[in-house]
């Protein structure tokens, strides 16, 4: 895109600047639109599983429901509790929302469509997703209210626990692909299974990690069945209890943008990203972004499906799953995968 702006007569620096800003807007606005649509899909899927109709009043099939909700929260009054720490109370949702958008900078949408194709793409995503906890922790503390505070305690412990197992699962993928760059990881999956299937997830070496990653992703985004941070039967609405109008909506948007990000990561790391599922020439006629969106939607459907069917975990079960099952499993798998990679690259050592 920089070349295009250069051809309009700008010098390189100005062209780069304008191109980057355009790239950011090209990701952020469609992402917000996608969040609005995915919230609608989410509600329709739960409704279908509970034999209800779901949103069906605003627009054809209720399609405009999310936009109606958006206008509603936008017009509401922002209430700041008198005991709250005002500055932090307002900053917290902004942090959640910004961090949810930041990570999309390195996601490759097709072979060339990636805002910043950096060498440490995966580390960048880990770093940014580890910032997500601050929005929750700060909002809980700044609300100066007990349920939000309990919720932020839970969130801090939960997100740190699952970040560890996510980190180790990512390491096994990185070992297999030999790079931290997301585009290269996708290219390494091309024809990975017998030269036919474009996916790491079907490799028996990585399939368990794909499952661990999917479950950890649900825990990391505090999504059902791990939504203990906003368990309404125990904590009213968790860290969002004191929030209203746009500040609440920012949490909401950030949460769904994070869920979409985790779905995209699942698709990119284990299921071939923008590659078609099968390495067959005619399938490449379909643009890569369509394949990526299809895969993201499949994973989002799984997230919704789990939410509609699985009851919430107890807190001690959540911690046990993270520390006593996923962490040792992922750690052992790192060793197994590195042994496999050693044999693959350098031959049988004996």
């Amino acid at each position: 895109m920089t070349e295009f702006f250069q051809s309009l007569g700008m010098n390189y620096e100005a062209a780069w600047f304008v191109a980057t800003i355009c790239g950011i807007l090209l990701i952020a606005f469609p992402l917000m639109l996608a969040v609005a649509i995915i919230i609608y899909c989410d509600r329709k899927i739960w409704a279908a599983m509970a034999l209800r109709k779901g949103p069906n009043v605003v627009g054809p099939f209720g399609l405009l429901q999310s936009f109606a909700d958006g206008i509603k929260v936008f017009l509401q009054e922002t209430i700041i509790p008198s005991g709250a720490n005002k500055g932090l109370f307002i900053i917290a949702p902004i942090i959640t929302f910004t961090v949810a958008l930041l990570a999309w900078a390195v996601i490759p949408f097709s072979e060339t469509a990636v805002l910043s194709d950096i060498n440490v793409g995966l580390l960048y995503i880990l770093a940014i997703s580890s910032l997500g906890v601050y929005g929750v922790v700060i909002s809980g503390w700044a609300s100066n209210s007990k349920y939000p505070f309990f919720s932020s305690m839970r969130a801090a412990a939960q997100m740190i626990s699952y970040e560890v197992s996510i980190g180790f699962t990512l390491i096994s993928v990185v070992l297999m692909a030999g790079t931290f760059n997301l585009s290269d990881i996708i290219m390494a999956q091309k024809g990975h299974i017998g030269g036919v299937v474009n996916a790491y997830g079907l490799n028996p070496m990585l399939f368990p990690m794909a499952v661990v990653f999917l479950i950890s992703a649900m825990a990391e985004t505090a999504r059902h069945p791990f939504d203990l941070t906003e368990a309404e039967s125990e904590l009213v609405a968790g860290y969002q209890t004191e929030y209203s109008s746009m500040s609440f909506a920012l949490f909401w948007l950030g949460e769904y943008a994070n869920i979409l990000l985790m779905c995209a990561l699942n698709a990119i790391l284990f299921w071939g990203g923008w590659l078609p599922p099968i390495d067959w020439e005619p399938l490449y006629a379909v643009p890569g972004i369509v394949w990526l969106f299809l895969k993201i939607f499949v994973f989002f459907f799984i997230f919704s499906w789990v939410m509609a069917t699985v009851p919430r975990y107890r807190y001690d079960q959540l911690m046990r799953l993270g520390w006593k099952i996923f962490l040792p499993l992922a750690l052992i798998w790192v060793v197994i995968v590195s042994g496999y990679v050693m044999i693959r690259d350098h031959g049988w050592p004996l």
């Binding site: 440490v120 580390l123 770093a127 580890s130 910032l131 906890v133 601050y134 922790v137 801090a156």
Partner: peptide, 26 residues
């Protein structure tokens, strides 16, 4: 040094400071 930068964010901001905040908040 983008690798060191990412490690700084992951280790210090993502883990150490969260625990720090956790203790100070209480």
């Amino acid at each position: 040094a983008e690798f060191i930068a990412m490690l700084l964010v992951i280790v210090y901001v993502g883990a150490v400071a969260v625990l720090f905040l956790f203790v100070v908040m209480m």
